[in-house]
Simulated scan of single mutants.
Amino acid sequence: MRSDSGFKGNKQSLPSKPCAACGRPMTWRKRWARNWEEVKYCSDACRKAARGSGG
């Protein structure tokens, strides 16, 4: 485990929100730190499915 991150392993305190396509809960990821407000889909598959249905 990397020691340079501030994360101590408490995943309960991370924010989450539902996927716009499938409704599954998405937990915050460091990768999404800069654009968490814009994240709508939990995966590429959900993103593609939503675009294919006219979204």
Rank of each mutant, 00 (worst) to 15 (best):
M1A: 13
M1Q: 08
M1N: 11
R2N: 09
S3G: 14
S3T: 11
S5M: 11
S5K: 15
F7Q: 11
F7K: 08
K8I: 09
K8E: 14
K8Q: 15
K8S: 14
G9E: 05
G9D: 06
N10F: 08
K11G: 06
K11A: 09
Q12P: 00
S13N: 09
S13L: 10
L14V: 02
P15F: 03
P15N: 04
S16H: 10
S16I: 00
K17C: 06
K17M: 09
K17L: 03
P18M: 01
P18I: 00
P18Y: 00
C19L: 06
A21T: 07
C22P: 05
C22D: 08
C22F: 05
R24Q: 12
P25V: 04
P25C: 01
M26A: 04
M26H: 02
M26Q: 03
M26L: 14
T27L: 14
R29T: 10
K30T: 11
R31E: 08
R31T: 11
R31W: 05
R31C: 11
R31H: 08
W32E: 10
W32M: 09
W32N: 12
W32D: 11
A33N: 15
A33T: 07
R34N: 15
R34W: 04
E37A: 13
E37G: 10
E37C: 06
E38C: 12
E38A: 14
E38F: 07
E38Y: 06
E38Q: 15
V39G: 00
V39Q: 07
V39C: 04
Y41F: 12
Y41W: 13
C42S: 03
C42W: 10
C42K: 04
C42Y: 07
C42Q: 05
S43I: 02
S43T: 12
D44L: 08
A45I: 04
A45Y: 06
C46Y: 03
R47V: 00
R47T: 05
R47F: 00
R47L: 04
R47M: 01
K48G: 07
K48P: 02
A50W: 02
A50H: 09
R51W: 00
G52R: 10
G52P: 04
G52L: 01
S53C: 02
S53M: 07
G54Q: 02
G54S: 06
G55P: 00
